[in-house]
């Protein structure tokens, strides 16, 4: 838990550093008629860095706890969830929402839920069709088509 705490603070600090560097490119001072464009980004980043440092100090001082960040068996099931999502978004970049969504749904149902094949196939085919008609046709909201610019064949 302590290690996770420290790692999280370090990640925040790195991000803050990047933001601070971006903010420095703007006018961080106070002009005649109020704060410059960079004033708030700069001082907010500074405030964030200081608060994160305070978290770090407290975390380092606190006694190590027995409780791990990931309870037993948590990491695998977490990865089982997150990796398919990341994969789906990657696939979406290429083949668009419908195919990527159907595949993701199918994989999750089969792999995580161990549902029977007919159900898996049925749901993952029905889903894109339903979404296409409701979201894209009815509500006129376009969905990602990916680099291949795939469109439903109807």
């Amino acid at each position: 838990m302590k290690r996770a705490e420290v790692a999280c603070v370090l990640a925040i600090l790195i991000w803050t550093g990047l933001m601070l560097r971006e903010a420095m490119r703007l006018n961080i001072g106070w002009e005649a008629s109020g704060p410059g464009a960079g004033f708030f980004p700069f001082w907010l980043s500074t405030g964030l860095a200081l608060s994160a440092a305070a978290v770090l100090v407290r975390a380092l001082r606190s006694p190590p706890t027995e409780r791990p960040f990931f309870p037993r068996g948590a990491l695998p099931s977490l990865l089982k969830l997150a990796v398919p999502i990341a994969g789906m978004i990657l696939a979406m970049q290429v083949v668009g929402f419908y195919l990527a969504g159907a595949l993701y749904l199918g994989v999750s149902m089969r792999w995580l839920g161990r549902h029977r094949w007919p159900l898996v196939v049925g749901v993952s085919l029905l889903f894109p069709v339903a979404v296409y008609f409701v979201i894209e046709r009815w509500f006129l909201v376009g969905l990602p088509r990916g680099y291949l610019d795939l469109r439903p064949p109807f």
Binding site: Y104, L105, G113, V131
Partner: peptide
């Protein structure tokens, strides 16, 4: 069942996020 509902929620969330600005 959660193995269906979870992914569906993720997919609808993705639609929602994309619809705001039409950006991947």
């Amino acid at each position: 069942p959660y193995a269906i509902l979870g992914p569906l929620i993720v997919l609808f969330s993705a639609i929602g996020a994309y619809a705001v600005k039409n950006m991947m």
